[in-house]
Every structure is written in structure tokens, then in C-alpha cells.
Design a protein around this nucleic acid. Sequence first.
DNA 1: CGGGGTCGGTTCGAGGAGCAGACTGGTGCC
DNA 2: GGCACCAGTCTGCTCCTCGAACCGACCCCG
Lengths: 151, 151
Amino acid sequence: MTLVTELPGRFCSIAAALEVVGDRWSLLAVREVSLGNHRFNEILAGTGAPRDRLTARLKALVAAGVLERRQYSDAPPRFDYHLTRSGRDLLPVLRSLMEWGDRWAVEQPPVTLVHSSADGEHALAPQLVCRTCGEPVREADVHRHVNTPAA
Amino acid sequence: MTLVTELPGRFCSIAAALEVVGDRWSLLAVREVSLGNHRFNEILAGTGAPRDRLTARLKALVAAGVLERRQYSDAPPRFDYHLTRSGRDLLPVLRSLMEWGDRWAVEQPPVTLVHSSADGEHALAPQLVCRTCGEPVREADVHRHVNTPAA
DNA sequence: CGGGGTCGGTTCGAGGAGCAGACTGGTGCC
DNA sequence: GGCACCAGTCTGCTCCTCGAACCGACCCCG
């Protein structure tokens, strides 16, 4: 894990997160794996990254514990990539990015998310609520509290 | 707006979003502005970016409609930066990144979010629900539907 | 008036990262 | 033997990024 205190700028877990997944290809690689494309060439085609860049990013993501590299063939030795718990926890990040991109970066959403609930299938209409009080979260009601460490 | 069809890899609004805010400093700049640091030197100090990089990113973010550059002084001419609607819509992305970073990229969360609701103040415990059916969203219940454009 | 500081950048040279594409080595298939 | 597949590695080039110096317009202070 990167020592966050060594990062430039504000001490902040957003910066720490971006240190892991903040480059051009990492999140796209995670997206591909989450879509079921586990093999190198599949991820390569899905992201469009240069081969050596993808190699480097996958290596870094494995080192960071976001992906897991599994051997799926003995001869020749072949490996594929799977999400770890940490990698699955990135899905909300991908979803919020997709939501923003749908609204602000493309003309028409290329993919819509469908929610299968007891009510049947319908478009996913994501809304953030607070588990503690049950109310929808409004930006204005959220405040930051800085934890000054004992050090 | 970038023509997403020109991007390498899968046609996807995550990639389109990353084209706008997917570089090393953009999201940190948006974070700083959202924290009330509107001036160049404040953003510079908060992010730790090199000056010329910050200049370039701010210019790109203004061009992309994420930030707005306002003149706050005539003589000498001075400008500061504010979030547009699009920029404010990035706050959920920042929040999800922070949440992930808190759990997976730092040892101890440097900042906690506090939710002020009718129940009083408590730690924000964000949970995604579907506005349509009212149920909490589980990963397994979300599916992708690809919109094949008429073209 | 001169000197120093603030602000929001721009310019510079060096170095590293990113790129496309060719290449590799191990294997299976015919 | 000949070819294709897979998962990378290597190569040579470009371009981006960096820290630091510089800039011009303005302010305040004496």
C-alpha cells in the first residue's frame, strides 16, 4: 500500500484511490474483467490499450490487490484475471462514472442498467440513501469531518 | 464533446467519462473546487500538481464544461474556478472513490462524512437504492442492456 | 519613487512514460 | 512440417510530465 503521506497535496483517500486506479487504463481493465473478460487478449480488445501498457497495469492492479491472477492452464502456462473483494468494491465507482458519462460525456447512453427486483425488470434508477436515518442523501446535508490522527 | 466512437476499445460512457476526468489531476482539481478552493494557487496547493499541468487541466475542464472560469478582479485581471452543474454531478464519483480509498487504499480514513438529517448528525452510511422499486441495489440484480443505435 | 510581495499563469530543458507494431516461446491442431 | 493461438516482451520513437525559473500586472510600504 502506498504511504499516502508521501503523496503531494492534500491528505485524502481520493488521492490514494487515484494512485491505484487513477491512470488511463486501470478502470477500463477492471470494467472488462467485471464484464466477464478474464483473459489478456479479451481485456486488450475491450480496452484498446497498448499491449505493454496493459501488461504493466494488470501487474500493478494485481500488486495492489484489485485483481487476482489465476493459472487456468498448465501446458502452456496460462493465466487469467479475476476481481478480488477490493476489485468488486470498485463497481460503484464504475457505476457512478458511467452515470456521469451518460449524462455529460456522450450523446446517447450506449448501455442501460436493468434492475431485476421483486417488482420485475425496470431501468435502474440509482439513488443514494443513508442507511442510518433512511433518508435520501442531499449534497447540502453532507459535511466533512477531518480526523486528526494522534501523530 | 469527444466523439466516443473514436475512442479505442469498447463503446462505453465510462471510457467517455475518463476521457474528460480520467487523468491524474482532473478529479483532484474538482475536489479542491468542491471544497471551496476556487483560486489557482489554492487548487495548486491542494492538489500538489505542477503549475503548467494544473493550467492545462483547468483549461480542459473548462472546455469540457465541468468548471467555469470567472473573473473576480478587473485590475489586475484575475480569475477563479467554480463547479458547473456537470461538475457538481461529479461529486458522487468523488464520494465513491473516497469510499473505496477509505477501505482499500489508506490505513485510516483521513476524513469522515457527516450526514445532517432530521434525526440529527451521524456518520454517513451511503447505500444505493433503486428509486423505481425502492429496494437496495445488489450487484447480482443489475444487468446490462446494450442500446444498439439505429446506425 | 523603489523594492518587495501576490497572483495567475507561461516557458524551459531533461527525463520518463506511452505508443504502435514487430517479435518470441510454448503449445495444439491438422 | 506448417500454421495459428496465447500472453506477453522488446524496440524505437514521440509526446507528455515534471520542477524550477521566469513574467507582467498590480498592490502595499516606506
